[in-house]
Design a protein around this nucleic acid. Structure first.
Lengths: 242, 242, 242, 242
DNA sequence: CATGAATGAGAGTTCATTCAT
DNA sequence: AATGAATGAACTCTCATTCAT
């Protein structure tokens, strides 16, 4: 009896190892050549298995791609959560800094892969990446932001999805800029100013201004801010009329 | 003799019309199927011409793609410049609003195409889009930002490329969010809050706060200036309504 | 009346000039690229006319090729006949030398074209060169050989077609050997030994040995005749030098 | 384990059989239609395999052609060597007869293929047949001729490459003549006279004449030969002056 | 007549997928 | 289960020929 059960355990391990090898190989080839440019033969060779074997794990090239994407984004999500869990800072801006730092670096390192993900969105109908991957990943930011609002660190009227787009959008573009600037030298230098700026941006734009330490003594600065907000409203009004 | 020298103006017109038809058809097919997924036959059919005819206008599929991209980005740049030229507001934030509005709408309308552009960057070596297209396009923002700094409307220590990445990155992500929210209904609604937020963000984060001299002590003179500007805006608005 | 007749004369001249231009261009392109490798467009460009114009002179690419071949072989035949007509020597071997010299040089200069001719024989069913071209050309040799037999210079039992094959076959192969030996330097050097050997071969193998009557006993009369002929040659030579 | 290492001998045999089928089919199609005229699809159909299968044996049409040529010429060389090895005659002329007989028959049977080989030489740059094939083949003659000279059967001053060109050139042309004469009836008849003539030619032209069995008694025949040679010299001189 | 833009059948080649071993 | 040889549909691109101007 046992003689049968034990090998099955070995079998399972072997299969999982092989599956990992396939995913690893597929990821490399897909990133380097894109979906259409990737050859199943090359993936098989790199995984050290026969061409046909892939098809006993994944029904088609498209499904293999999907699995690769799944694995990638799930990994990112876990990493991001780990980063947040490990962060010692408890205030919003400290934790935001950590997340920004992690994300910027991730985007730079995995630029090819992220581009590939978005490329598929439109190109290939059969490999339309489920948006859940992304949704799970950005949920890390969402939780952080909502907690910041709950704790009164952020303006209560800030809109979550706008803040999220600003956060991820800015960092992704910044990653491209950094890449262009220094192609070969993928160091962590030059990421710092971007992260700093992002935190400063959130502080300035979304931070809850204590608004008058002294209830009665309205400072001139507070007045100035009020005037700014009024100006903004007038601008908006004007643009709607044009 | 004359019959030879003169392409009879009708000839030239016909050729140009045909070339436009090809580009138009190519753009549609490329957007819907991606570069590799697009079939030259389908492009030809859609353009209403024979398959071989395309090759007397463009040497290869890759060159056709390149031409489509060229045309698209050049068009965007011109449009953006027109928008800026037509804008009545003279202050930085008013003009930024106009640009943000234009860009957001453009990205939403042309989302497929923009995704396609970035997809090519990595995938296909032969159709690596020259970065000049993008560079020209974002130059519109660059000029606006630098002018804002010159006029003292923006902090002198703000870094251009960081601001640029925040502007375009945020708007592009926002466009995606908007798209997801309401797939079919591509109205101009819901773009307004994003634009408003972007302008507010720039005002809060990059705006030059007159009270620079004293961090807390805003001078009365500065306040006076702010009020003057606001008054001017309201006047302008009033004159438009009359 | 005349006004009509005269232009037609000019017209005819113009047409003939154009036809020659086409043939000339076609020959060059066909030789350099072979039948299948030749492009009608390139022929037209080289002839300085439009693509379609060729088709008002020749119905198809194959017919154009045929015309080119016709012209080439007819030209060769005429040249060979001219060479024979101009030759001062009256004896068979002197004239054979002249023909061998001419043919060897011709084959070397037109090697590409001759190869092309034979290539078509098998390859392309529609451009099967009529064998009459070749037949006319080799008829020059045939007449020379038969006359040599009539005059008793050649063995009466020699078979014409065998001699012909030896003559043309050997020279053609020799031409290839010479070509291989010195690719770039297509001088007339090194052709001489081949020609000499060919004449010597014919003399040894096909020459009528007067002593035919008695295998071993050469008659004095025969020797006398040989000396007479030799004397004549020397006289001719002497008169040329004076 | 074993099931992997051993291609089971049946596998290997099957692959080799398939490869032979491809070469055989390719040869037929190439010969009948020429290189450009041959269709890969037809070759595949004739070999009884799928179109794509050919490409796992040969990278391109050109390489397939090359392999066909290689196989053909290598086969001819081996056959020719076998014929020489099997020949009982030990003297030069006996062995030459055997080689001439074999070559003439070969050329007649494989006329199409030989024409094709030469056709490629000029036309197609990518399928330029390496001259080594030919060189190896004609080496059989070379060895025979040199041995004939060593044994004193042939004139010591005879030039190898000239003799070689005469041998192969004459036989090839003769083959064409024979073909033309009787298209359908490819019997071995009519080859005999050509072979006989070729041997006689070599005997007369290249054979070493014992030149005077008796040292003192110069025969009239010997004198006659001397006069012939003198005549030849004068002819040469005369032709050089013109 | 001359032109050359337009045509479209057909070429060689690729590669995801299958299936006998 | 694993293999990799075999498949053939589908691709891009060519070019002889046509025909409106």
């Amino acid at each position: 009896m046992a003689s049968k059960a034990i090998p099955s355990e070995t079998q399972r391990a072997k299969l999982e190892r092989k599956e990992r090898a396939i995913l690893e190989a597929a990821r490399t080839i897909f990133v380097n050549h894109g979906f259409d440019g990737a050859r199943m033969q090359e993936i098989a060779r790199r995984a050290g298995i026969g061409e046909g074997t892939i098809y006993s794990y994944y029904d088609s090239k498209a499904e293999l791609m999907l699995a690769v994407l799944q694995q990638f984004w799930d990994g990112l999500t876990l990493e991001a959560e780990d980063v947040m869990a490990a962060e010692q800072a408890t205030d919003f801006f400290g934790r935001l800094r950590a997340l920004a730092h992690y994300h910027l670096n991730t985007v730079i390192v995995n630029a090819d892969f992220i581009n590939l993900t978005f490329a598929l969105r439109r190109n290939n109908s059969e490999v339309s990446v489920s948006r859940d991957h992304l949704r799970h990943y950005v949920a890390v930011f969402d939780r952080l932001f909502l907690r910041g609002q709950d704790r009164g660190e952020l303006r209560a009227d800030a809109v979550l999805w706008q803040a999220r787009d600003i956060f991820y959008g800015s960092l992704e573009y910044s990653a491209r800029s950094i890449e262009m600037t220094m192609e070969a030298d993928r160091s962590t230098r030059d990421q710092q100013p971007v992260v700093d700026d992002m935190v400063a941006l959130f502080r300035a734009h979304y931070g809850a201004h204590p608004e008058g330490e002294a209830a009665d003594g309205t400072t001139l600065a507070a007045l100035s801010r009020q005037i700014e907000q009024l100006t903004e409203k007038v601008d908006t009004l004007a643009s709607r009329l044009s």
